[in-house]
Every structure is written in C-alpha cells, then in structure tokens.
Design a protein around this nucleic acid. Structure first.
Lengths: 351, 351
DNA sequence: TTGAAAGCGCTAACAG
DNA sequence: CTGTTAGCGCTTTCAA
C-alpha cells in the first residue's frame, strides 16, 4: 500500500533498491544490506542480489544514502587558487587519497577572496561534508565561519596557510626552517650580499619564510640590508619589478631567496632583459618545486614543499578527527623540507 | 504524532525547517517556501522566517533538498589531469560560471586512466549530478558508460577531447584550423623545412592538429618530410627526445610546430643543451597559452586555446540540455583560435 | 538470517 | 496566502 505500484518501466527509470527487492521477492532492507556487504545476509542471497543489481544497472543514490546514514563520506577542500602548480598538485594528491579511502572530495576555489571563501564553506556545510581541509585566502580576517563549522561538529584542517587561531588542526611545511636552510646553504657557498624577495607577511607562509631568513642571517653574523628585503605579491610580476627596482638603483645583491617559483621566474626574465647571467652574475633559489624548473636555463633550485605529504597528512588528520569527533585533541603537524639543487645555488658566483 | 517531539537542544543540534516552524508556530512548508523566496508567502511572514532562520543558524540540508526535489543542481566535471595549466584554467572558469548560475561543480580527475574515468562517472551518476562535462582520458576506447549516462537522462558535454561518438554534445577549439593558421604563418615568414612534433593521433586534438598541419603544407605546395613528423606524448620529455633524435641524425628542420606547451619547453631545453639558439637557429610555435611563456627566453608564441570560452560554452550547452532534457538536439560547438605572437615565429631565421 | 517500522530533512501537488 | 498529504531512496534499530 505504501509502495508505489505503478507498472515498472526499466527502460529509462532509475533502478532503486525497491525494484531489485520486488523483482526478487525479498525486502528492501535485505537488498540494502546485501549490496553493502553486511554480514547479516547469506552468501547465496547476497550473490543473487548483486547479480540482479548489476543486470538492472542499479546505481545507489548517494543523496538518499547520505541523508539516511547521516554521513556523506565527503570532505570539502577550500583552496585559494587552483591554476597554480602547488595547489593543483595538492588537490591531485587529495583526490587520490580520498579515492583510496572511499571518500569523495569536493573542491572549492576562493580566488583569494574571503567573502567567497565564507560562502563556499557555508555551501560545504549545507552539503553536509564530514570535514573540511582549507588553505585560507590571503585576505582572511574574520574567523567566525571556522568557529561555526566547529560548532556544527564539522572538523577542519588548515593546510599550508594557517590563520592565527587557537586550537585548530594544522598541517604545514616548516617554512621558517626551510628559509633558514636555504640561506645557510647560500652562506656556506660564500654569499654575503643576500636579498629576500618576500611575499606578504600577513599570511603565515610569507611571515615564516621571512623569519627564517632573518634568523639565518643573524645566526651567521650577517646584517640584513633593508633595501634587499622586498615584500610583494607571490607572482612573476612581483619578482620582475623587485629586480628591476634594485637594478635601476644599481643596488643588486649577489643572491636572492625568492618567496615562490613564479617570483623566481620574474627574476629570470628581468635578468635576461638587462643582460645579466644566472647564476654567474646573480644567483638565486626559490620556494616550491615544479617540473618546469628543470627546463629553465639554468635549472632552478628550490626548497621542496612536498605536496604529497601535505595532502596525505591533512587527510589522515581530518579523517582521524572525523572518526573521533567527540574528544579529539587538535594537532599541529609540521613537515620537513629539503633543498632540491639544480643549476642555481650550487657555487659561489664571485670566485 | 508524526513529528518527533523530544525537547529541542539548539546548542549543537543542526537546525531544520521543523525547528524553525515549531518555534514560529507555522508549518514546515511555509518555512521551506519562505526560505526559497517562493511567491506564495507574504512579505511579513517571509521576513520573520528568514530572520529566525538566521538567528538559529539554519543551514539547509543539501542532500534532503536534492532528494526531495529530484534535482541536485550539481554538475560533474571529469578531466584527465589537473596539474596542468590548460585544465586547471578550464576548471577555474567552470567553477566561476557555476557559482554565477547557482550550480555546484564536482570535479573528478581521471589521470588519463579510462578505468578510473569510468568509475568516476558512475560515482557522479550516483551523486545524481544533473549533467557532466568531460574531457576524455587518452586511452578511452569503451564508450558504454557515456551511453549509460545518456540512458539515465544525464546530459553529457564533451570538451576539448572528443571521442568518436555520434550524437553527442561537443565543445572544442578548431584545432585543425589552428594548426593550419600557424603553419601558414610560418610559411609566410619564409619557412619551408617545417616539422610537427605531434601528440597521439588516436585522440581528437592530436589528430586534428596533424590534419591541419598536412593540409597547410599541401595547400602551399610543400611536401611533408616524414622524418619531421614525430608522434609522441604531450609532455616535455617527448619534445626533448624528438629534438635530440633529429639533432643526432643531423636532420633538424628550421621550424617546429609543437603539439603542446610542455613539448615546446622540452625543445627549448634540448636546443639550449646543444648550443642552438631559438629563434635564430631553430624557430617554433606551440599550442596552448600560459603565463609562463612570457617568461621564457625568447617568449614563446602560441596558438591560444581560450579556456574561458571552452568553459562557458560547455556550461551553457550543458545547462541548456539539462533544462530541455526531453527533446534536445545535440550541438557541436567549435571555438575559433588566434595566434599569440611573442618572441618566436615572428621572423624568418635564414634571412 | 530476514524484515517491519520509522524516519533522515526536505519539497511537489494539491486543497483549503 | 497557508497547510495537508505523500513521498524522494535509503538506513538504523529492533523484533521475528
């Protein structure tokens, strides 16, 4: 009586559990359990049911399943950009990880816009994602939405770009240490006149990289020339402009630590334009690894940020938190980096 | 009697339409309608309901909504890669478009693996996406899953990489014409010894680009040297290897049409390695535009593939099909391309 | 081992 | 303008 019993048209109709159940003369629940491999059901029945489901072209309704189970097995990912090697590589690894762990991942791109980011998080909450991995947009100032998620018992993991927020899960590269390592390496090669083309220091990575730079200089008894520390965006133009500024002022350093790979590209271009050779006239290293660096001339050395680890550790942490939602203690995971040396930052250019 | 009437705990509980309705002493439907801006509801009631919903921190349950409405307002996107400028740029535009049109977009990356691609499409069907945009993986041979989607009344749009399938929606760049245009330009500059470092011709873009190359040569009375037409992957290594092969054979052409931007990068690297100068010793142009090309030396000219148009036209077509599911006539949309000339392919290198 | 009852949160269709 | 009825397709108790 309750079940709709119009005649069944298998041609275009979507097959449901009921259809299978009806055809086999068993109950919906039996089918549901069989298809999910629930131990309740006998081998033979289960086999039969699976076979029939296949034949009928059954495809479980994710919406209905999530609604009933009160779990979507979906995580949300919020990134500031996607058309950028670092982030596209991270999301790639997240997808892979999710696939291996029967999760879906729903990606959202905030375009460095906190307003949009907020809407997207709301959207993800509406979709009842089980948790969220987020790399915050540059201009994030209001943390309320993060609190909201927490209140709704949707765990968050902040990845790479971390807001100043107590009591949250974070996974990030040891940016400060990496900066330190790179500068120390340069100093060991013999460089003294060292610059840092930095990013904005109001976001964690910019700040940390800056701190590591200063510490390495200080620890090695070198003074920082303030003209040589230039804050900018994280892009090509910024690297180009900073270089040109110093060139015009006839105040070029011997070595530059570039805050990102695009910044370094900008430096390459500028150097080429004014007829200076890398690494002989001016040497550099940057943050962030990408295939293309091998094909620059000379191949660009860098501080590797292992995107695979960022992805997998974030996912593990998040899933861990999802599965222990009640008394979970936040974790801060720091990932070690290493230098990848290619054609720059391998010898002293004044020897 | 039907409604659960345990006492309400607003602290962590997720607010539902019922909670709002109960609090206000109206029915669930009234709230539902009010929140969706349905014209049925009076201004005053609607205002009150919206206000209350806000106060309670109501967030609509997307799953329940989709289930009941039998429409998810979500489209699926299947791409072969994401860590690649072309695709990340396309998806970026798709996200933007979706946002502007109250759609969600669910991205899936097949990693050029047809098996995985099939699973992902099944997954998307399970999620009851309203339609799918797909750029097929290189090794796609079995089209059955596409038929399945169609049978389930989930419209498909094939973008950029098109399978040999009758009666389907497609959106693609005019690859053949673009090839033709590029070669013709080179010929007009004065080049005669022209090579094509091609991709696999079993996928549409590889094939079309190859066809355009041959046609342009023929139309201009030039013979194609078979040694100079090399099929390979679409990546750096392929460009590098092809170049080196010809170099070793002392059989280098004057001009190369590279099937992708990474292929061109491989050529740059190889040329540099053997001490040949671009564009003076050997000149080239490639398919695909990317910011980085401005920063190569010399800046690399290309055939632009407008990712924004690919995205928006695909979305428009798909949404159009979704809204007219019953008697929709498939469309084939071709997007015109133009050359972006920078530091290569702008003068004859033997003059 | 199987199934009946109940409901996840929401909406379409109709009635008042 | 508002509400009633009836589900969307599935799963979790709990009873048989």
């Amino acid at each position: 009586m309750k079940r709709k019993s119009t005649k069944t048209d298998y041609s275009t109709k979507l097959i449901t559990l009921n259809d299978i159940a009806a055809k086999l003369g068993v109950s919906t629940i039996t089918v549901s359990k069989a298809l999910r491999g629930h131990p309740d059901i006998s081998k033979t029945t289960a086999e039969l049911i699976k076979k029939t489901a296949d034949e009928l072209g059954y495809s479980p309704n994710f919406m209905a399943r999530s609604l009933a189970a009160r779990k979507s097995n979906t995580i949300g990912v919020v990134l500031p950009q996607i058309d950028h090697h670092f982030f596209s590589s991270v999301i790639d690894h997240i997808y892979n990880f999710a696939l291996d762990h029967q999760y879906h991942a729903f990606l959202t791109v905030s375009h460095e816009n906190a307003e949009l980011q907020k809407k997207q998080i709301q959207s993800l909450l509406s979709m009842r994602v089980d948790g969220i991995i987020i790399s915050v947009s540059q201009d994030t100032k209001d943390f309320e939405i993060f609190e909201t998620a927490k209140k709704r018992r949707v765990p968050l993991v902040f990845m790479d770009r971390i807001p100043d927020l107590a009591d949250c899960n974070t996974v990030a590269v040891d940016d400060k240490g990496a900066s330190y390592k790179a500068i120390e390496h340069a100093i060991n090669l013999g460089y003294r006149r060292i610059a840092h083309f930095a990013g904005h220091t109001n976001i964690s990575i910019g700040r940390e990289r800056m701190l590591g730079f200063h510490k390495a200089m200080k620890d090695n008894g070198l003074n920082v020339n303030p003209d040589w520390v230039i804050e900018g965006d994280f892009d090509e133009k910024s690297g180009y402009d900073s270089f040109m500024k110093l060139y015009r002022e006839k105040n070029l350093p011997d070595f530059i630590l570039a805050v990102t790979y695009p910044t370094a590209i900008g430096i390459y271009t500028a150097a080429q334009e004014v007829g200076l050779t890398i690494p002989d006239d001016i040497d550099l290293i940057c943050f962030g690894n990408s295939e293309v660096q091998n094909f620059l001339s000379p191949p660009l050395s860098c501080v590797n940020q292992p995107t695979d680890q960022l992805a997998s550790k974030s996912m593990n942490l998040l899933i861990d938190n999802i599965n222990n939602i009640d008394n979970f203690k936040c974790k801060k995971i720091v990932i070690d980096t290493e230098l990848i040396l290619r054609g720059t930052c391998i010898k002293y250019n004044r020897s």
